[in-house]
């Protein structure tokens, strides 16, 4: 039992990212409203960002910006264990940007759909299409 709890705590980030991802995925599949799906999509994307950022965390390390970065002692020795892994951050910056871009496009599409059908509910739109 304690073993289980310690596993849960030790990888809490990973469990939460899975939860969030599944929430987002469920919303994208099961929600009927197009904008709700877009919200779900964003949650889905941020879940992955959470996963990546969790990879980078390093116990006892500080943020990946070098201290004493400039000035006379610019070239003093830097130890890798002192700094959090920067690579996932870099990747996730890109992923966030992609998320925003996708969001913009998705919303633009939603507006166009609304202009055509005057509703955002998928089943109502499909009913309108079927009527035609």
């Amino acid at each position: 039992m304690t073993d289980l709890i310690s596993t849960v705590i030790a990888k809490y980030n990973y469990w939460i990212y899975i939860t969030l991802m599944m929430i987002g995925l469920y919303a994208m599949i099961a929600k009927n409203n197009l904008v709700k799906k877009i919200v779900g999509m964003n949650i889905f994307q941020t879940a992955i960002i959470l996963f990546y950022v969790s990879i980078g965390v390093k116990k006892g390390a500080t943020i990946p910006i070098l201290e004493h970065g400039h000035g006379p002692d610019a070239h003093h020795v830097v130890h890798a264990v002192d700094y959090i892994n920067p690579l996932p951050h870099v990747l996730m910056l890109t992923a966030i940007v992609v998320g925003v871009a996708t969001l913009g496009v998705a919303l633009a599409l939603a507006i166009r759909i609304y202009n055509n059908y005057n509703t955002l509910e998928e089943d109502e739109i499909l009913a309108q299409i079927r009527e035609k």
Binding site: I65, L66, P86, L87, L93
Partner: peptide, 8 residues
């Protein structure tokens, strides 16, 4: 000094 910027 900002490693993220440099890598990015």
């Amino acid at each position: 000094p900002n490693i993220v910027t440099a890598v990015l």
